[in-house]
Amino acid sequence: MDYIEYIDRDSGERRKEIVPGEGWLKWLYHNPLGKLVLHGVVKRKIISQWYGNKMDAPSSKGKIPGFVKDLNINMNEATRPIDDYTSFNDFFIRELKPEARPVAPEPKAIVSPADGKILAFEGISGLDSFFVKGQQFSLDSFLQNCMLSKKYEYGTLLIIRLAPADYHRFHFPADGNITASTLINGDFFSVSPYAVRERLSVYWENKREYSLLKTPVAGDILLCEVGATMVGSIEQSYSPDCDVKKGQEKGWFKFGGSTVIMLLEKGMASIDPDILQNTENGFETSIKVGRRIAEACN
């Protein structure tokens, strides 16, 4: 893969993604020597913790202006000006003005829980359209819970990838009641397409947390936040076993690229056709928090 292309949802045009450290990622995941470094050092928790701590230090705030400029980040959406942040991580988990992410109001609309690029697979099969052929998404490995694996065995898989330039807070995709978060420890591989196209198992090898959103319109939606290389931590800001509203904040990722995975029960929702078609053609689709991605069938 020479570079990452995706479909801009608003225009329908194919665009090239700006990837910080692109050459480094290609070397790590596609060069024999790079793979030795990846498995010996980079995937380990201590490396991501060390870098996360650096991004919490006051001295890291000097990185903010260049990052904003290089990645064309719209600071007009943020609640605070660029010089108000105390560290890079303080900026990285920035809050946005409510009007910057309007939430689809229709009762049956299921919305994106995060900014990023989305893939959708109905039946948790047919992943050959994006990933290297022959790979299957192992629910048993991913959830480590045989009852939940059975529940979503024939359901729909949604993968929302957050790049470093994206807004890194995640939200609820529908109204409902949310359970406590279950932590599964793991490694810290990159979730960039450079890594996952050939290694789907990254999603069940990495550290992750999942919870169940029990909704009146779309059954039980499983929400899973997946860590990645240089992600300092996954922070949950919600109160478990409480009613929540569509678009309400659930938590945030500290520095790095990350992923939110959603599992929908079979027959409970219809994914928007453009997202399905782009996925079938081998492309992710750009998405924002609050934008409709599916319609509940109830």
Rank of each mutant, 00 (worst) to 15 (best):
N89P: 12
N89M: 07
N89I: 13
D90C: 11
D90R: 08
D90A: 06
D90E: 12
F91R: 05
F91I: 06
F91D: 07
F91S: 08
F92S: 09
F92T: 10
R94M: 12
R94S: 11
R94C: 14
E95F: 03
E95W: 00
L96S: 09
L96H: 12
K97F: 04
K97N: 13
P98F: 12
P98S: 14
P98I: 13
P98K: 15
E99D: 15
E99V: 14
E99H: 14
E99M: 04
E99P: 03
A100C: 11
A100K: 08
A100G: 12
A100Y: 07
A100V: 07
A100F: 12
R101H: 09
R101K: 12
P102A: 03
P102L: 05
P102S: 02
V103S: 11
V103G: 14
V103P: 09
V103H: 09
V103R: 10
A104M: 09
A104P: 02
A104V: 00
A104C: 10
P105W: 02
P105L: 05
P105H: 02
P105K: 13
P105N: 06
E106S: 05
P107Y: 02
P107H: 03
K108R: 14
K108M: 12
K108P: 00
K108A: 13
A109F: 05
A109E: 14
A109Q: 09
A109C: 11
I110D: 03
I110A: 05
I110Y: 04
I110N: 10
I110M: 06
I110F: 05
V111C: 13
V111E: 08
S112T: 10
P113T: 10
P113W: 09
P113Y: 07
D115V: 02
G116N: 04
G116T: 11
G116D: 06
K117M: 08
K117Q: 14
K117S: 11
I118H: 04
I118T: 10
L119T: 07
L119K: 00
A120S: 13
A120G: 09
F121A: 02
F121Q: 02
F121N: 01
E122D: 13
E122A: 06
G123P: 05
I124L: 15
I124S: 10
I124K: 02
I124N: 15
S125M: 01
S125N: 09
G126Q: 06
G126L: 07
G126R: 02
L127S: 02
L127F: 03
L127A: 01
D128P: 00
D128L: 03
S129N: 03
S129M: 00
S129G: 01
S129Q: 04
F130V: 11
F130W: 03
F131P: 04
F131N: 06
V132T: 14
V132R: 05
V132C: 00
V132Q: 07
V132P: 00
K133G: 12
K133H: 05
K133T: 14
